[in-house]
Design a protein around this nucleic acid. Structure first.
Lengths: 301, 301
DNA sequence: TTCAATTATGCTCCAAGTGAGTATAATAGA
DNA sequence: TCTATTATACTCACTTGGAGCATAATTGAA
């Protein structure tokens, strides 16, 4: 039984993921008898292994691949993956681990300067070719539609939450390195981002998708912020995570009217332009607020 | 390694969960080597065990309790829980299993006829007593706030998604039978709903919460509907799941403007009053639509 | 000293979405 | 024929979210 962690921090406009070893791998370790619980086990050895105190931890997914068979005992290896949020400063240095921007692994996911040319230049034509290579006509149309929805072709909106769907499409179309491992044909077209060992990039995609979704209805961003920050810093962090730019006045309105932060009374001094007020997270909201957001047409009756 | 299933169907205004054995238990079984994947394993033996074809399946949570220790080998038992949706008619009869309304287990969750008197009559005073029994004043206030948010005290809105939080509060306050098992004091006040073996009621609460949340942004209700239905039937199903009443005109508007259904051309004949048009689910939406719902103040720039 | 550049902050507008109520249509049964 | 009952359509007010503009406060260069 393995525990695998997607540990995320945001440093200077780059959303980073913690990797270990020379190859690109997510930190992982066995679940041991001494551990009080799964979460506690994860917390323990991530701190041992990387010197990182984890703040927010959330379970992602449990899987048991066919490939993942233990050697001696005839037993399937189960992997339980987690998403963890922390701040990069929390760590002491070590040669074995490194922070790396998650856009190294998913370059098509960063739309802060518009849609990357990688998409229209390379991914789109190859995905279309893959779709048209389908045997049946129904299958062909289905592939075209999936690609169009996931990547926003044909004038569709970009949906930043579809990280996993996009990765899976590229995998099926053999446009990521992992897809060509099993077959003997070997590295045909290694265009799309840095790959990781085993299925770690897929797990990372799951984590990013979960985080991009979660920041919209739970105040988890603050786990990635220093104790005191400006509203623009907060905005830049959300932008780094979601991979898109936000409308400044509306972002402030959203944050303020939800009472997520309070002024410290101080202002920044080190920047150009008008000094910004400094804020801190109102920890009380963690108790007060609960994910509201009903989409059902309720009746008061 | 165990797989545990929360199998849900809706029959005649009652949201039902599939239980097995004389005691109240969720169907569960071991994950075996022959199984292609976890989901496949679950599907296989639920069908064997209960004769039920499962439609939609979704992983809930994986846990490894301290209590859950295997006998011979010194190894922790891992449980992976799933939410599965089906239709009650899909099954052949069997003495070993039974459908049971989930409001038998959580009577405080059904608000279709207003807030149950159980809440204000029994739960609220006992929860307040429990909160006031806290040692420290901070702890006391925290308990009061948690209870108020979860159950909608002090004029707060009822949030139907907080199923798990409510169950956990009642557990902490020793108002459900499960809480008194470990201690020797034994059955003090078994007021709150039918209990289940081990932690199955907690898993059921997780499943209900997930489903109540999911119906708001994904068209999963249709997994519980017959192929053809009226809009009112559909509404009643959603109401059964969410435990609250919906506004009829607005519910129709929501369903229609999202193009979730299409007319069959037929109408009902067997009912009183004006015959209703019959609809079927537009399966195409599963491909077309993707959970939209952005809450970030995006910028087109 | 003045002005341009830059960042911060506050405000308005408009369109879409959502809660709520009302009106009309079509059936069965008294 | 009238009444009860269910279905269906429409209107209205209010909130929310995207977008743009105006003003404030600072730094640094002309």
């Amino acid at each position: 039984m393995d525990l695998i962690a997607v540990v995320v921090a945001v440093t200077d406009h780059a959303p980073s993921v913690l990797t270990v070893g020379p190859a690109n791998a997510l930190p992982s370790g066995p679940f041991e008898l001494g551990h009080r619980s799964l979460q506690f086990g994860l917390r323990t050895w991530v701190e041992q292994q990387t010197g990182h105190q984890l703040g927010y931890i959330e379970q992602l997914y449990t899987f048991a691949d066919r490939d993942r068979i233990g050697e001696e005992r005839q037993q399937r290896v189960i992997s339980i993956s987690y998403l963890a949020l922390t701040r990069a400063e929390h760590a002491a240095g070590s040669a074995k681990r490194a922070w790396r921007s998650w856009y190294d692994y998913f370059p098509w996911e960063d739309h802060r300067s518009g849609a990357p040319s990688l998409i229209s230049g390379i991914l789109q034509p190859r995905l279309l070719a893959w779709a048209n290579g389908a045997g049946q006509d129904v299958e062909r149309r289905e592939r075209l539609q999936r690609a169009a929805i996931a990547f926003g072709f044909d004038g569709r909106d970009w949906n930043e939450e579809l990280v996993l769907q996009r990765y899976e499409l590229l995998y099926e179309a053999a446009l990521v390195e992992e897809a060509t491992r099993a077959s003997e044909q070997g590295g045909s077209i290694l265009i799309s981002g840095t790959s990781m060992i085993a299925d770690h990039r897929r797990i990372l995609a799951t984590g990013i998708a979960r985080l991009r979704s979660k920041i919209k209805y739970r105040p988890v961003v603050f786990e990635l912020m220093p104790p005191v920050f400006t509203l623009l810093k907060l905005q830049r962090t959300v932008e780094a995570l979601s991979g898109r730019l936000l409308h400044k006045p509306n972002f402030r309105r959203l944050v303020e009217q939800q009472d997520l932060v309070e002024e410290t009374g101080e202002t920044t001094a080190d920047t150009v332009g008008r000094p910004a007020k400094l804020f801190r997270f109102r920890h009380a909201v963690l108790d007060e607020r609960v994910a509201a957001g009903t989409k059902l047409p309720l009746s008061r009756a």
